[in-house]
Amino acid sequence: MRPSRLLLFLLPLALAACKRPEPPAAEPVRLVRTSIAQPQQVGAELRLPGELRPRVEVVHAFRIGGKIAQRLVSVGDRVDAGQPLARLDSSDTAPALAGAQAALSAARTDARLAQGELNRQQELHGRGYLSQAGLERFLAGRDSAQARVEAAQAQLRQAQNAVSYELLRASAAGVVAAVDAEAGQVVAAGQPVLRIARAGEIEARVDVPERDLATARGAARWQVRVPAAGDLVLNARVRELSPVADPASRTYPMRLELQGDTSGLALGMSAVAASVREGEGRVFVLPVSALHTLDGQPRVWLVDPASSTVRQVPVTTAGLDGDTVHIVDGLAPGDRVVVAGANLLVAGQKVRLPAARAAQ
């Protein structure tokens, strides 16, 4: 082979050997779903679905009947104590008030005339021109006129109260939970118009089936899980268990008082109440999808909130319960655990959370 041809053959190989190897491609930022690890009490004997309800829901109604002229609030509005809620048409109460004022004026006029006549008759009685019996008749007339003044004053106060009752006000601060009457509707005295859920007092309402009534009564403690609040779990105690079954559903309404921070909860959220036996251990309950195995050791991915990167930690499990796994060691309360997308991650990889979870 000629030297020139050999040189042309070796030149590409030499250039290829001088090229630096390309760095490995950076791992993409993965979208993952996470859950905050919170210890839970295991050993649930009974699980019942329910919803979050206000502890006190006050039905607001007008104290007089009439036509609703204006509704000033809507469902979901927050109201303060004394805030106007609705107003009645004043066409019914205004004539009654005017009539009571006129009746009081007439009664006072009659009382003044009766007092003047009594004064004259007392003067005649002093001169001996009027008997004692005649004087007593004028005294009775004066007293009767004064009584009519007092009756007219009472009727006026009643008419003024009726005018003040035209405006429906909130009895306490809270949230408008329901509207039962609209503007233009004629309502009777005491007919529900609005329902106000008192602020800051949330509890769980569950319905206990007949077959589970004995178990519910004998439960030592309860826990309530709220899926919409990041699977938040709160301890609870029974505030009320009705002794009478609902005639339609044949279940027994039960109210559970939530213990802990309920500021992030909203009325109407779904909840799951679980009775708890005493003496059971506290574990972390996570979806099975959060778990993966490396070298025969169960592990989970944790998200570092500062750097938005993941790292895997070994954990000790205590068995499965349906689609969840019980973890007894390796996690701490407040750890953010990846529960979806774990099979695509590598150590140190950056991740991002859905917008709703990232704000938590």
Rank of each mutant, 00 (worst) to 15 (best):
A178H: 07
A17T: 06
G348L: 03
R336W: 14
Q83V: 06
V29F: 11
A214D: 07
V226K: 06
G116W: 08
Q312G: 00
V346A: 03
S275A: 15
Q185A: 12
A216T: 02
A245T: 01
A14Q: 15
G319Y: 03
R336Y: 09
K350R: 15
R217L: 14
D89R: 03
A332I: 12
S91H: 09
A162L: 03
A94L: 13
L234Q: 07
L286W: 15
R63P: 07
E57V: 06
A151T: 09
Q360G: 11
V288W: 06
G65N: 06
E57S: 15
V303T: 08
L286R: 11
L85H: 10
L302P: 09
M1G: 14
Y165G: 00
S242A: 13
R20D: 09
R357H: 12
S308L: 00
S35G: 02
A37K: 07
G218L: 02
I36N: 02
A133Y: 09
S275F: 04
Q101S: 04
A199T: 03
H292I: 04
V58T: 11
A228D: 14
C18S: 14
A61R: 09
V300A: 07
V315E: 03
G128W: 10
L113G: 01
D304M: 08
R239F: 04
Q155N: 15
L234K: 07
S131N: 05
R336V: 09
G174W: 10
R120I: 13
E257N: 02
R221N: 11
V303M: 13
L124V: 14
F62V: 07
Q155R: 13
A16Y: 11
L135P: 03
A69M: 08
Q40P: 00
L258K: 09
R250I: 00
Q160D: 13
F284L: 07
L241A: 03
A147P: 14
V337S: 08
E51N: 10
Q155S: 12
E280C: 01
A220N: 03
G65T: 11
R30E: 15
A69L: 09
E51V: 08
L52T: 05
S249F: 07
L345F: 01
R357L: 12
A229W: 11
A96R: 15
L139K: 01
R53D: 11
G200P: 15
A111M: 02
L10R: 12
Q349N: 09
P247I: 04
Q349H: 06
L135K: 05
